[in-house]
Amino acid sequence: MAVNILAIETSCDESSAAIVADGREIKSNIISSQIDVHKKFGGVVPEIASRKHLEAISLVVQEALDEAGTAFKDLDAVAVTYGPGLVGALLVGLSYAKAAAFALNKPLIGVHHLEGHIHAGFLEHPDLAFPLVALVVSGGHTSLVYLPRRGEYVLLGQTRDDAAGEAFDKVARHLGLGYPGGPQIQKAALQGNKDHLDFPKAWLEEGSLDFSFSGLKSSVLSYLNRCKMKGEAYHVPDIAAGLQEAIVEVLSEKAVRAAKLKQCSTILLAGGVAANLRLREVLKARAEQEGIHVVWPSPLLCTDNGAMIGCAAYYKYMQGDFAPLTLNAVPNLSLFMQKN
């Protein structure tokens, strides 16, 4: 008999519920996005996000069950993201999941948001072998993670300030491109010359696998301010292309360096920015030069979604790794055992 898990994800501005069987088969994956709501503010407003999750949660769960042809009584467990993320948003999904698990007398499984993103890759590449290196890139996270085996996560490097997606969002807002910034920057960059503007790349101290994007962001904004003060025209596509190239080069170079350091033959790209076509292109080319294979999820699974939570939860289910009904939201939850 298949293990059917209802998985819920509400860590930021997507309300998502999915039914996943045996950690591989996506029976349904319903995502209710709040992009149109937050677009006018240029970013996510936590209080509004929480209220929208409250409105959507019951509806997306029911739609997930209907699309999967599954009833509550057919579920084997309820999984939910409990951190990191916006605390109010997390609490909506967590409260629903705890109530459902209690009412159904089924196990509750708490999942780390980044663990979900990493497992999105296993949904479409179930034969991925360990050890491997994961590059997790999103609006809130930029991390290099070593996975010696399933369930073990060793932090190799992370951003010291802004995440890559955050840099995209902030620059896109100043360029008037709208929210979310990543897709808009990518679209504009297609019409630009990536070599016209040479924005700084933060490599940090020798051998470091950490990232820093605040200096790059400040450099782009300073360039915009100088142009405005002097009354000079600037070309938005060139700025977008230059910014994108500076971010992609550092991410790709350090991911390949990490894989070589850990003698891994596979890099798993995950998170919202993993949908960026230029990042995929550059990372794949650099990795192949070193005999390293790169995989990533399809664009839908790069975003926050319930299916990735259901995949991660399945392996916890098989180990009997269940959470108590006292489980609370942890907005700054850490996934990593250590950094080396």
Rank of each mutant, 00 (worst) to 15 (best):
M1P: 12
A7R: 08
I8L: 04
T10P: 04
D13I: 05
E14D: 12
S15L: 13
S15N: 15
A18H: 01
V20I: 10
A21G: 06
K27H: 06
I30M: 10
S33M: 09
Q34W: 12
D36G: 04
D36R: 10
H38L: 09
H38D: 03
F41I: 09
H53V: 13
V61R: 15
V61N: 07
V61P: 14
L65T: 09
D66V: 11
A71P: 05
D76H: 15
V78K: 14
V78Y: 14
Y82C: 08
G85L: 07
A89C: 05
L90N: 03
L91I: 05
A97E: 13
A99L: 09
A101S: 15
N105V: 13
K106L: 14
I109D: 02
L114Q: 11
E115S: 07
H119D: 01
A120V: 01
F122H: 09
E124F: 07
P131T: 06
L135F: 03
S138Q: 01
G139F: 01
H141I: 07
H141Q: 04
P148W: 04
R150D: 14
R150V: 01
Y153P: 06
G157N: 03
A163M: 07
G165E: 02
E166F: 06
D169P: 08
D169R: 04
L175G: 00
L177S: 07
P180V: 04
G181K: 01
I185D: 00
Q186D: 15
Q186Y: 14
K194T: 05
D198C: 08
K201C: 10
N225T: 09
H235V: 11
I239A: 01
G242D: 02
L243P: 04
A246P: 03
A246I: 05
E249N: 06
K254P: 01
R257N: 08
L268S: 02
G272K: 02
N276V: 06
L279A: 04
L279C: 11
V282E: 14
R286N: 11
A287S: 11
A287H: 05
A287D: 00
E288W: 09
H293C: 12
S298D: 15
P299W: 04
L301E: 00
I309R: 00
Y315C: 03
F322R: 13
A323R: 14
A323F: 12
L325P: 10
L327F: 15
L327W: 03
N328M: 11
N328Y: 10
V330M: 09
P331H: 12
S334G: 12
L335C: 11
K339C: 08
